[in-house]
Write a protein that binds this DNA or RNA. Structure first.
Lengths: 203, 203
DNA sequence: TTTTTAATGTTGACACTGCTAACATATTCA
DNA sequence: TGAATATGTTAGCAGTGTCAACATTAAAAA
């Protein structure tokens, strides 16, 4: 039944790669294993991705699109609630899709601008935050707004990075006051109120 | 002149690995290339590091020690100034030593607690921030303090992640108001006042 | 001091990787 | 219909992490 030409191999490879990346981490993802899992020859992916970085960029792009979808689900008419929702969803996304998040923000893809689709997907996400905060903020100075957006973003981004350590660390460390894990754990257990706090602090 | 036994190979390998890692990034660092650069046989490193992860852990440990040294250089008797100094040095370290920073906070070393020396080095860094902030804060509630430390840390950590993108991005994007890069760039150009702001905001 | 043992080095090999070249087959379009 | 192009396969290179077997030396035990 299987014909020589596949028909939709590129997208299928991307989908498969996304799954594999999230499952095993992008360092374990090899083009060969991807080809095997997709039932094509070892070098078939090279017809669609010139280098491994191209494949990474594709996965990262999908990641940003997924992130955008996630955080742009409007919940209520209250802007502040939406912002808080955005924050929660952002952090949850980063922790849940940790391996993909690595690809999106790490150094595996060095130059974003080499991949217009990726760049546009990433920027779309930023714009959503920007427009939501513009609506929210009483200070309408554009410099203030863009700087505060970076502020919020950095905090969410940093929090993702730190929270992920929680999942690796032995649970007994979560009670040790001499480590950052106790505080991280308590933040993690009530993420909503934590995010509420730092969004309200911007007003 | 060269004897069969090296004498101090382990530390020399670590030093060499640190240099190579920072120069090329940890993904490009191979045990074999490390061995070659250190003028020993391909498998000599395996007498000192069971796996590549062990080597990574060693590099990360050195990174934390270097970071600790950097941020703990006391500057003045004014605590706030010291905290600001810490923030600046932290962010500068992360941006300057980007590749090492990846190893310290990324997923290359999955379980910190497998490497007590690394864990201790990382914790030492956290403790320094904690004790400095304890001194600084007027609110002496320990929960407030530890949470705010995570806060500060997340922000510095997140900022490092975002600022690094600046170095990769084509410079023409730095003027585009539709991207986050303009705001990032202006923050980067006056890091001191930015950090001042967010440290004072904790008071 | 001598002898045994353990530490630290080397060579060779295996399975895996990214990637290229050469070739095979199917699709598109002049 | 036929030529150009897109998309697939097989074979192979150089480089990788890691292991087993062996060589040399330093440290410990006799």
């Amino acid at each position: 039944m299987k014909s020589y030409h596949h028909g939709n191999l590129k997208q299928e490879l991307i989908d498969c790669a996304c799954k594999m990346c999230e499952r095993d981490g992008y360092t374990k993802l090899s083009i060969r294993s991807l080809a095997k899992e997709s039932n094509v020859s070892q070098t078939a992916p090279y017809r669609h991705f010139k280098t491994k970085e191209d494949l990474y960029a594709e996965i990262a792009k999908e990641g940003f699109n997924k992130l955008y979808k996630t955080i742009s689900k409007v919940k209520s008419k209250n802007i502040e609630e939406n912002l808080i929702f955005l924050g929660e969803e952002y952090v949850a996304f980063g922790v849940k899709n940790a391996n993909t998040y690595d690809l999106m923000f790490g150094t595996a893809v060095t130059d974003f601008t080499k991949y217009p689709h990726l760049f546009q997907a990433a920027n779309q996400t930023y714009h959503h935050l920007l427009s939501l905060f513009t609506e929210y903020s009483s200070n309408k100075d554009s410099e203030f707004i863009s700087e505060t957006c970076i502020d919020l973003w950095a905090k969410m981004h940093g929090l993702v990075g730190l929270l992920r350590k929680l999942e690796v660390v032995p649970s007994k460390l979560l009670d040790m006051p001499d480590t950052p894990f106790m505080a991280l754990n308590s933040i993690n257990n009530d993420l909503n109120s934590y995010i509420k706090k730092f969004i309200r602090a911007t007003q």
